[in-house]
């Protein structure tokens, strides 16, 4: 499959937002500045690469697959410490690791790493797949926020306002994406 096909698949049929249930809260979902988008894609690509290679070539041969979440925690702490040191050197403040605002990003990064790591084994595909999956997530959250904005103008029954409507919208998106998955690609394995 070409890189364009891979990006197309991971944006639609294999989208991590619907396949992994990573529905954004709506407070900031879908709003990414250009620099934060680049940083997010790079983080997703690196997380997929590091986790994918370590899982396949370090843990699996020794039967240590179950240690994967510990490995990802270690990677997370290491990356966070490096980032903090870099920001301190640049004289910029950094958020603490236990800042709740970082939790959704951590969850998405791990979901992307797990999703891509289980599909690909080559370095190149892990990197591109990680970035493409993150791009798919950003696109899907953007679509969802646009749908929610449009629905605010509609007369929706009171019990469905807020999160129920968000999940129903996500359900319709998931159905549409499942159609793409079944109709064009079925399953991706490279």
């Amino acid at each position: 499959m070409s890189v364009i096909g891979l990006v197309f698949y991971l944006t639609l049929g294999g989208n991590v937002m619907v396949q992994w249930g990573l529905i954004p809260s709506g407070k900031k979902g879908g709003a990414f500045s250009a620099s934060s988008l680049v940083a997010f894609l790079a983080a997703a690509a690196l997380a997929s690469l590091a986790h994918g290679l370590a899982f396949r070539y370090l843990l699996s041969p020794w039967g240590l697959e179950s240690l994967a979440p510990i490995l990802f925690s270690a990677l997370l702490f290491g990356a966070f410490a490096a980032l903090k040191a870099l920001r301190t050197a640049l004289g910029k403040p950094s958020r603490p690791l236990h800042d709740e605002g970082l939790f959704p990003t951590t969850l998405v990064l791990y979901a992307v790493a797990l999703s891509i790591g289980s599909r690909f084994s080559s370095t190149w595909l892990l990197l591109v797949g990680g970035a493409a999956a993150a791009l798919g997530y950003v696109a899907a959250t953007g679509f969802l926020e646009a749908i929610m904005e449009r629905l605010e103008l509609e007369r929706v029954p009171e019990p469905f306002r807020g999160a129920p409507l968000r999940f129903l919208s996500a359900a319709l998106m998931a159905l549409a994406f499942a159609g793409v998955d079944a109709g064009f690609f079925s399953r991706l394995s490279i």
Binding site: G63, E65, S66, L67, I70
Partner: peptide, 17 residues
Amino acid sequence: IVAASGFASAYASGQAA
């Protein structure tokens, strides 16, 4: 504890194989 988890994982892997 992580080392113990590693042994548990390797054992489970062997049995599953």
